[in-house]
Design a binder for these strands. Structure first.
Lengths: 303, 303
DNA sequence: CGCAATTGATATTAATAAAGTATCAATAAA
DNA sequence: TTTATTGATACTTTATTAATATCAATTGCG
């Protein structure tokens, strides 16, 4: 009774799905037929789902089988790709640097970095990886990430880091909303107001920041929704589901009837992003890239 | 002498990379230390590359090791995700909600629905909940959701549903890209092209749709990235990380130098969204809202 | 300098898992 | 009814993997 999916199981599943015939699949795999049967059975057991509707005369993929086939194919080709990448590029991979980033950086900062690096360090191959802040901290620790564009400065103490983005929050509001005419809005105006909040897991940093803000001010908005993606915030505000606090980056995507309104907040309530890397980089390429990114972003601040 | 990479090898490699210590890694894996050594050795043999610079006093990742760690982590989590997807063990959502929607609906469809319902059924209080398609199916089953704006029609057989959005995919491409000048682009032009793919979990529907597309066509793009948010796709395309296939909704957010180009795809490759509800609604309010939403969306199609 | 502690590697043995052989029951076609 | 072909199963053999005990190498400490 195997307890985990194995590569053999996936390979058998793919082979059988190609031939729709256990014996032919076994032949293609250079093995006899019984183990193929067993591998499929074990795989089904692991997934707690039937992959084929089969009897001695016909083999048909079930819905789950069809679904799983795409994933199985993906996994196997991923494994093969990874081997090839390592085997082939053994020597030429000196200049690969992996960069994690939080989603909000993708729009503006990331193209800036990519362009700047292509000009200044063309020999470096960058691998970008979209991931949440705490995943990045883990990645930096384990070594799967070289550099991170991340929030959560408290977790960053053991790294080299510096703040590269610091944006104020704006009150995002539908033009129909009662607050849209008011001047000098503060956090106290949000008491009992329908409010679209960040998802506590995916948008952990902003969630905690705004939670503290409300807690300290003794303000209790009415959280109608927990959301993570910028465009969803904007859509919901447009749908008059409530107001939201968003960093200014998102401004350019504001749809009709949605306004980014200034709101007076304490100085520490800002949307900050840090560039972080290990204190002892594994190769000096990383440090070069780090400095180059800092340069690119510094130029941006000047502009 | 093993001839192929195994999952145990990858798990050992990840564990050792986390601890940077064979014995501790072995403990975490609930096994003794010698097999860990062997698995790493076999993996290195398979890859024909040293993963660690190690002696009895220290363990350090080599360049190849650093690179491979990214892939190993990705592969293992992909396997786990695939199992979860099939087993459908995803926990149900926190809180109780009424209308689930996939993120891509937030921008345009959702405000439309909210406005229309506010006019026609002002007494109904709608609770929106951003969630992935398969979470919605589960929500509909468990009763935490009344109505869903969702993909995955195959899972919807037991519900009342009808298609409310059907958009073609466009090739999203940087103007510098070699394909940007080509006419009559088809899926075959994507072979070996750097491609930004949907995340297999969060963007499961599109992931599977595009996987099938490539599988059927025998085309193998070079997946450089797995992403879920529209703005991240656009940012990465702008950063020349690769091309992507996106539904036309996203078009309006396209930044500079990024073009939505027509691509000839099979008729079944479309971005479809369905409105779904239980066949026996818990209250007749649900049916009213369902019909009202259909009405709102029908008017939109007319317009 | 020397001793204890800790590290990753190894040889040997024990346990486990996988593959092969032979065979079966079920089915469809002639 | 017969025959050929299918996937499943029982049993045996083989191969793989893990644990035990031990080693050599290194470091830190007094």
């Amino acid at each position: 009774m195997s307890t985990s999916i194995t590569i053999e199981q996936l390979k058998c599943f793919i082979a059988v799905s190609k031939e729709m015939n256990f014996r032919k699949a076994a032949k293609n795999l250079n093995m006899s037929q019984p183990p193929v049967t067993r591998h499929i059975a074990n795989l089904e057991h692991n997934l707690k789902a039937k992959l084929y509707e089969r009897n001695t005369r016909s083999v048909k993929l079930t819905k789950e089988g069809t679904l799983f086939l795409t994933h199985a194919t993906e996994i196997i080709s991923r494994i093969e790709d990874a081997s090839k990448i390592i085997t082939k590029n053994k020597d030429s991979m000196i200049g690969t640097v992996s960069l994690g980033f939080v989603p909000s950086m993708a729009n503006e900062i990331l193209p800036l970095i990519a362009t700047h690096l292509k000009e200044n360090l063309p020999q470096v191959k960058l691998i970008f990886k979209e991931s949440m802040s705490f995943e990045q901290v883990e990645g930096l620790n384990t070594g799967s990430l070289d550099i991170g564009l991340t929030r959560l400065p408290k977790d960053l103490e053991s790294f080299n880091y510096s703040r590269v983005v610091s944006e104020p929050y704006f009150l995002v509001i539908n033009d129909d909303h009662e607050l849209s005419k008011k001047e000098n809005i503060t956090v106290y105006d949000l008491h009992n107001i329908d409010f679209i909040m960040y998802d506590a897991v995916i948008g952990r940093y902003s969630f905690e920041l705004l939670s503290s803000l409300f807690l300290n001010a003794g303000v209790k908005p009415n959280f109608v929704q927990y959301v993570s993606q910028p465009l969803v915030f904007l859509g919901l505000v447009r749908a008059s589901m409530g107001v939201a606090l968003l960093a200014s980056t998102t401004k350019k995507h504001a749809p009709k009837n949605v306004t980014f309104k200034e709101i007076q907040l304490p100085g520490w309530v800002r949307s900050d992003v840090y560039l972080a890397t290990r204190k002892q980089p594994k190769n000096n390429m990383t440090l070069q890239v780090y400095n180059n990114i800092m340069e690119a972003l510094y130029n941006r601040i000047e502009a």
